[in-house]
């Protein structure tokens, strides 16, 4: 009785999250993994243990192509985000002298996260479309004469949209990493004869790597699992792995194949996360 009372807090504190993880994470993943070995038998599927679904994924060029395309798009989104976010974060930390302006600019990056994701993706339809803002501007500026359709419904529009949506996740960790670098390290570098450009590459860049790694991981994983942007602004060649999964669970009614795809996706994401984590730890420990 008293033992129970003594251990009750510990049981509650550990038990509730544990139950949560088992019920809403491990169990669904288990079900998913189980399904991935099942057999599709029209109109439903039957329990089995075979690797046919995985075999299809890695032999049917259609799926391999989608997987590679998704990786390519995600990497492009990461790269575009990095190229935009790094200079921006650097400017905020090193060049923006007014704390108030810095806060406002930082909030300007974060604020879109409060708006519906769908809306943010949809906005790019109205910017890039044939009747859109970009075309109107180019016609007004006299650069083109008739509206162009090259901006929308292709991989370019997808990268643009996804970059816009996920860039806060790149800005935040890089900003934090840059802010944590002691100011006197750059002074020491200047003191030891290195100009600003050299100091940037030898001090700022290596010391902000944990932030870059974290931003890269977040952006990659989020883009990798996205299915709304391809749906809204992606063209016929814009199908990503998440769209294929949606189809398998929906109209194609092939849950086993969809599950196998999901498992593959999960493995890729976990791989990227652990890689990012390792880079972060290594650079944080100083052992570059």
């Amino acid at each position: 009785m008293s033992a129970l009372r003594r251990h009750l807090p510990a049981v509650l504190v550990l038990g509730i999250p544990l139950a949560w993880i088992v019920l809403f994470m491990l169990l669904p993943y288990g079900i998913l993994a189980t399904y991935s070995f099942w057999l599709k038998k029209y109109p439903t599927f039957v329990p089995a243990f075979q690797f046919g679904n995985y075999l299809t994924l890695f032999t049917d060029p259609q799926y391999v192509l989608v997987l590679l395309r998704t990786i390519k798009i995600s990497l492009l989104v990461c790269l575009a985000s990095l190229l935009l976010a790094y200079p921006f974060a650097w400017f905020l930390v090193y060049r923006c002298r007014s704390a108030q302006i810095r806060t406002w600019l930082y909030m300007a990056v974060i604020a879109p996260l409060w708006i519906s994701y769908l809306l943010r993706a949809y906005i790019w339809k109205t910017i890039l479309g044939t009747e859109g803002v970009l075309n109107s501007f180019l016609i007004w500026a006299g650069i083109i004469e008739t509206p162009s359709s090259i901006f929308l419904y292709n991989q370019f529009s997808m990268v643009v949209t996804l970059t816009y949506i996920f860039i806060p996740f790149m800005v935040m960790p890089i900003y934090t990493a840059l802010e944590k670098i002691p100011a006197n390290l750059n002074e020491a570098s200047a003191d030891l004869g290195l100009g600003p450009w050299r100091s940037f590459w030898r001090v700022t860049v290596p010391l902000s790597m944990p932030g870059v790694a974290a931003g890269f991981t977040l952006t990659f994983c989020l883009s990798f699992g996205d299915f709304v942007a391809p749906f809204l602004v992606g063209g016929p060649d814009g199908n990503l792995i998440a769209n294929v999964i949606t189809t398998q669970f929906g109209s194609a009614l092939n849950w086993p194949l969809g599950s196998a795809l999901s498992v593959v996706m999960l493995v890729v994401v976990l791989g990227v996360v652990s890689l990012g984590d390792r880079v972060e730890r290594r650079s944080a420990a100083g052992g570059f």
Partner: peptide, 11 residues
């Protein structure tokens, strides 16, 4: 200069 908290490069 020898900085107050030394400013050694941690990496």
């Amino acid at each position: 200069m020898v900085f107050q908290d030394y400013a050694l490069f941690p990496h």
